[in-house]
């Protein structure tokens, strides 16, 4: 049952966790640095591949070398903003049995995972924006950023982050049954890579693959906000995008509640 009192205590607990996590994060600077390098590297690799293709052909899927660069550098920020760790964190807690202690606390274990992510995100996005700006000059990126798109992004980005968190959490619950999800987790991320607009904008995919991408939530959490910010979406598309994201968040939230209950029952607290 969700009561106002419980909501309040969850929010209070969440804020406390957030403060704690912010402080913990600042202690592990080496981690932060290497994750920044990792996310920049991945984006720059795909950017370079597609730039090379566009340079050879002139224009690919409506993208020139400069607009490819723009797409991937905006994606760098969007990806960081919407990223979630639950498939790693929750699975790790389940496998090691640490989840048992968390289940005893009056705060939902998801709250702490969220707090960790928000804390990390605040710091990593601040770090990545200047890097993206510098890379934009290096790769001669061009972005058609319109003011209304920026306003729309204020709604779309948090929604996208929420949908991503919910979908990731649903997926992470598999670990309660399977204990080790390394195998299927990798597959999950590969689908995300190819159909989320991370490897390439979905406009360069063949039509049938593009249709599949549109039917799954991943494109809407990554590729779509990016396309919105680089000026490839019209105002009409914004309403569609918001509607799709709201629909996905309602649907996943509805499943998550019973799924969580069922999976905590399946949880065996194996321990190492």
């Amino acid at each position: 049952m969700i009561t106002p009192a419980r909501m309040r205590s969850t929010i209070r607990g969440g804020m406390a966790e957030l403060r704690r996590s912010m402080l913990v994060q600042t202690q592990y600077r080496a981690n932060m640095a290497i994750w920044t390098v990792a996310s920049v590297l991945q984006i720059v690799v795909y950017l370079s591949v597609w730039r090379a293709v566009a340079e050879a052909t002139g224009s690919t899927g409506g993208y020139s070398p400069s607009t490819f660069a723009g797409y991937f550098l905006v994606l760098l920020i969007v990806r960081e903003f919407t990223y979630s760790w639950t498939p790693y964190m929750l699975a790790d807690e389940v496998r090691s049995g640490r989840l048992s202690t968390r289940l005893m606390r009056p705060l939902h274990p998801i709250v702490q995972l969220c707090a960790d992510m928000v804390a990390h995100r605040i710091q990593s996005v601040t770090l990545l924006v200047p890097i993206a700006v510098i890379l934009a000059f290096v790769f001669d990126a061009s972005v058609d950023l319109r003011p209304w798109a920026l306003v729309a992004a204020l709604v779309v980005l948090p929604l996208a982050a929420l949908v991503r968190l919910l979908v990731d959490s649903l997926f992470a619950l598999c670990s309660m049954w399977l204990v080790r999800i390394d195998g299927i987790r990798n597959m999950y991320y590969l689908v995300l890579l190819l159909l989320g607009g991370q490897f390439a904008p979905i406009d360069v995919l063949p039509d049938w693959l593009r249709t599949i991408a549109l039917a799954l939530p991943f494109y809407w959490t990554l590729g779509y906000p990016t396309e919105l910010l680089v000026g490839r979406a019209s105002i009409g598309d914004v309403w569609l995008g918001i509607a799709v994201l709201v629909a996905w968040s309602v649907a996943t939230l509805a499943i998550l509640q019973p799924a969580w209950r069922a999976s905590t029952r399946a949880y065996e607290a194996v321990g190492t």
């Binding site: 399977l178 999800i181 195998g183 390439a200």
Partner: peptide
Amino acid sequence: AYLVNTVVTLGVSIASIALVYRH
């Protein structure tokens, strides 16, 4: 899970090459 995973990884690698060399 691992076997399927490796096959999927290989599939995605080949698919990404195919996507690039489509153009």
